[in-house]
Amino acid sequence: MSSSTDWPLWEVFVRSRRGLSHTHAGSLHAPDAEMALRNARDLYTRRSEGVSIWVVPSTAVTASSPDEKDSFFEPAADKPYRHPTFYEIPDGVKHL
């Protein structure tokens, strides 16, 4: 039932306070970017949840496919040497 007058969907990212990244808050409909920002302000920050907002057309997001999750993410799982806990340091050695 979608027609040309249906407003597109936008993804909303909100920075909750200075020093933190923008995180995904949800989505909303708006006819254009300016209105999307305003709608996001009204909907997602009406309880002082944010100091900064990004809106991005949902169609602009390219997402990884769950079918590829093994090849995308599993190869990272067997490389424990990337984590500091992999290494044994004698007791008493400091600042390392």
């Binding site: 991005v56 949902s58 169609t59 997402a63």
Partner: peptide, 20 residues
């Protein structure tokens, strides 16, 4: 901002402009 994990809406068309 659009890290893959953040999005619930997969993409089909090309981007219009984002605003912040």
């Amino acid at each position: 901002p659009a890290s893959a994990s953040a999005s619930d809406q997969p993409s089909a068309r090309t981007a219009a402009s984002a605003r912040h």
